[in-house]
Nucleic acid binder design. Structure first.
Lengths: 333, 333
DNA sequence: TTGAAAGCGCTAACAA
DNA sequence: TTGTTAGCGCTTTCAA
């Protein structure tokens, strides 16, 4: 990618104007005579001029780029959210830098110092990545522009859902179906320190207590948010001394694993074990899985708009948006 | 993200050396006295110095960034490949810019001029995005560094699989099971002009002919590479005058849709209709779907390494890597 | 081994 | 409305 590159000076010379005028004309800034703007545009097109982003970033102090950090990328939820963000960024020609911080080492090095995205992007969207209070404070006071998805802090705008209520709704649905021994497939967070699984667990327990049911720790089993983990956790629950008649899986993928495990034992849902998931994964409908729908594309879209607000306005107010979830009753309950 | 930023000059001053020395010391270049290097490192750490990427890019003419373009990323295959690429780039601290060119307009504007990634990245990975011969030639001669996944050209390194053979293998498997009326769920490419679906179709037909079976266009139906499309295409086939007893779906997601359609009619696989997919999607095993496994993470990894080669070496030779596919026989056949 | 200095290509005062 | 010019922060010859 070398070749002789045509610069703003070449355009200026060819158009018979100064580089400043070329810069203004091409960026649609005011105070350029229409005829001049036209001529500059024509010459630029003729020469296939493309402004050098590194130079303009250095001079302007802006990158026109947003960084997005996720725990992993090859999971339905995350790639969907990123897709939503990308769509809104593309519309305003902002680039998207992607970082995955799957393990603790990645996470630490990503946030070390001012953060790996520092100066490479104007702002950061953190999707389901934990941000401790101290770090949040430090970043906020160092002027970082951040939007968090599912991880509200007082320092930055956020997009999230009412995890507690959603988990309670799922659990209540099982209770409404007459179940009294209800298990839960939990998971350590994909991102250390991330609280969502805990909040969902609290919502689950809360619903049980509210219904006068006992909270039995032996009915809580980690499925690690994966299909395999869900199958194993389901197996553990079914092999227990007093197996549940219904199970709430904190993710659809775990629920899929659970369904597979149930079927492999010649049992059926909901007859032998009712199952409800969380997400409304692309395949949930096909599997007939009852679940809590969360509008992933909307989450991405709102996060994208929020992050644009942080870089476009001066001092955009911090906003905390809550998206609605919806109980989807299908055939597994 | 303003605040006063510490620059290389601050470090130089504090360490009592020149900026050139700081630059060398921090980038591990030779010809720096060990003691000097140590001191510079210490001072830089003390000051929390981070070099400004825009400035270094401008000066060095390299971006340390790779762009990846996919048709969409909220699809299992693409997010998996991107994850594979990301992993190898992260290991060498190269940033990843992500672009989706889902529709023709995006595609055109992305490739207009020297391409949107021009000067924002050192090289580009194109995953399942069509690149016409003329464009390829133009880009190659303009010095673009590109790696294609599933879209071999003579101009750039590529990673792909033998689509023709893989499709034939899937079809042959159905033939081996004794089927003689075999349908296929095809799809327009997600990326206009992309030939993979056509090549798979040819492989399918080739297998039929080789087995002495007739090629019946009425048994070829587009499912658009989506679950819904797969279900609809399957319905169309089953409602035809002479329905197939087996079906090859060009993607697992279409196969899932087909399975759902079959089940919804009270039919079963493989008894009433055998189904084989293509991908070995995360959920294929759970669904008991026979399929052609393609090693997505490996594809991403190879593509990542290939693209690094294009920017690290001077004149890395063009390589065309073929990854192996594998027939996974499960319960739908 | 180290430093001086000339850019890299652009933006944004400020002047005209 | 347009031009002049001083940087933006770094890399990289070339000299010392």
């Amino acid at each position: 990618m070398n070749q002789h590159t045509v610069t703003i000076e070449d355009v200026a010379a060819a158009a018979g104007v100064s580089v400043a005028t070329v810069s203004r004309a091409l960026r649609d800034l005011p105070n350029v005579a229409p005829s001049t703007r036209e001529k500059v545009r024509a010459v630029a097109a003729e020469l296939s001029y493309v402004s050098n982003p590194s130079a303009s970033r250095l001079a302007a102090g802006r990158t026109g780029t947003v960084a997005v950090v996720v725990p992993v990328f090859d999971a339905w939820y995350f790639s969907s959210v990123v897709a939503g963000i990308e769509a809104v960024l593309k519309a305003v020609n902002v680039d998207l830098l992607l970082y995955a911080v799957g393990n603790e080492a990645d996470r630490v090095s990503f946030f070390a110092g001012r953060g790996a995205w520092w100066q490479r992007s104007d702002a950061l969207v953190m999707v389901d990545v934990a941000l401790g209070e101290e770090s949040a404070q430090r970043l906020a006071s160092s002027g970082a522009r951040i939007v968090t998805v599912s991880g509200e802090t007082e320092h930055f705008s956020s997009v999230s859902l009412d995890e507690h209520a959603a988990a309670a709704t799922a659990t209540q649905h099982l209770i409404d179906r007459g179940h009294t021994r209800i298990g839960v497939l939990t998971g350590e967070s994909l991102s250390a320190g991330f609280r969502v699984p805990l909040v969902r667990l609290e919502g689950f327990r809360h619903a049980l207590r509210t219904a006068g049911l006992e909270v039995d720790p032996s009915l809580e089993c980690s499925g690690n948010f994966s299909m395999e983990g869900g199958a194993e956790a389901m197996a553990a629950l079914l092999d227990g001394p007093n197996p549940p008649t219904a199970v709430f899986a904190m993710s659809d993928e775990m629920a899929f694993g659970a369904i597979a495990e149930v079927r492999s034992r010649g049992l059926a849902s909901p007859q032998d074990v009712a199952i409800i998931g969380f997400d409304d994964h692309q395949m949930a409908e096909l599997m007939g899985l009852s679940t809590i729908r969360q509008p992933v594309e909307t989450v991405g879209e709102l996060a994208g708009k929020a992050v644009l607000a942080t870089i476009q306005k001066t001092a955009a107010p911090i906003s905390h948006q809550i998206v609605e979830t919806q109980l989807m009753v299908r055939s597994t309950t």
